[in-house]
Design a protein around this nucleic acid. Structure first.
Lengths: 212, 212
DNA sequence: CCTTGTAGATTGATTCATCAATCAGTAGTG
DNA sequence: CACTACTGATTGATGAATCAATCTACAAGG
């Protein structure tokens, strides 16, 4: 069905090979965990998906927890890279442009990979303590940036007074929930339109503006 | 610590007794599941918490799945009742009042019961298919109401044009995420102030309004 | 080039622990 | 006395983690 199907017969000897094998295992784990959920999925499932034996999984990862941990970390990094790249290439004259670009990149990222969505939103929560903190981290960085932008806007007199941190958290929460929803139900709205809706909603709210 | 501590010695014979015993088991399950999470919690934990024997749990519930299912259903009903009562007693002259009342009631409900929060937001997602649908249900009802209100507001010309369903979903998502956040971190904002912030944010957005 | 030695990658049967679910037995209640 | 709520030891299944055996890729010496 996917490119994962090619069975790796050759044994990994060089460091590059081993890294590649590790990547294959992470890819298999991503598929399996996204399909069945972390708890329901077994190491045997992952090994089967990766066309490797049960024991080999333990050659590359210490435990099932270690595996999901590494996986979530790598997905988070991918998302962060994607968002940061989008923000860098945004026009710098419009202060809203960077925000819009970041939000768009987020929706595009999740749209292009529904497995990542399930992983980050469903499984990350299903795990206790350690990972929960970890997931909080990915939000936190984003929230700090947004909060800073909001405060700047308030100083400049273009944004209303409001608890900036709470508002920033709300932005992140809304984006996350909508991204998750998109992975489950299709309402025919593409990722960029969705992002634009979010930006509009966050900026102007539901109440009709007087045309001034 | 709680009223759950009183050990039930007397055997439940009447229908009322049996219903009470069932309630006790649900209360115990709520405590245990909220503390350890659904997967990590065992039936033995629940039995111990309820001061009943292992086998008795199976006298009242068919399976562990049946138990969590019944529990989530009862929590959802409690939330729905609480919100509906608040809306009924809201002033009917201000169209925003009912919305504000509903949002307040939601935050108050979750604030008064952090176990319910964990249950509905963490465990419900960790479970697969059937329960996921079920949880979707509680949102859906709320969303339909909000959507209707939004459309009415748009007809009356006081709300901006926007995809009403998406906006309604956003409202629900924001409330849910913020309620969940409150159960984890305390930022010294009480439930009603939080609700008022949400209403303001949803209505007016971040951009400063012209004082007209 | 062709051995042949070896480190370490790969295997999967086995171990060990956990826990849901059952069931035969016990005792409270009407 | 009969009914049925209740008990908790037992069973059976599952699955994470281990480990001794096997195999392979590479290298060093002929």
């Amino acid at each position: 069905m996917t490119d994962t199907a090619r069975r790796p017969r050759r044994r990994a000897s060089s460091d590059a090979d081993k890294e590649e094998r590790r990547r294959q295992l992470l890819a298999a784990a991503k598929t399996v965990f996204a399909r069945k959920g972390f708890h329901a999925a077994t190491i045997a499932d992952v090994a089967r998906e990766a066309k490797l034996s049960y024991g080999s999984v333990y050659w590359y990862f210490d435990s099932k927890d270690d595996l999901i941990h590494a996986l979530i970390e790598s997905e988070q990094e991918a998302l962060r890279h994607s968002v940061e790249a989008a923000m860098r290439s945004a026009a710098s004259d419009d202060p809203l442009a960077a925000v819009r670009a970041a939000i768009r990149a987020t929706f595009v990222f999740f749209e292009s990979d529904s497995r990542a969505t399930k992983l980050l939103f469903r499984d990350a929560l299903a795990l206790g303590g350690a990972v929960e903190k970890h997931v909080h981290g990915i939000y936190e960085r984003f929230i700090v940036d947004v909060e800073r932008a909001i405060v700047a806007g308030q100083r400049a007199g273009v944004l209303a007074d409001a608890p900036a941190h709470l508002a920033a958290y709300s932005v992140a929460a809304l984006i996350g929930q909508l991204a998750q929803r998109r992975s489950q139900t299709d309402d025919g709205i593409d990722a960029e339109a969705m992002a634009d809706f979010v930006v509009w909603f966050l900026m102007d709210g539901l109440r009709k503006r007087d045309p001034s």
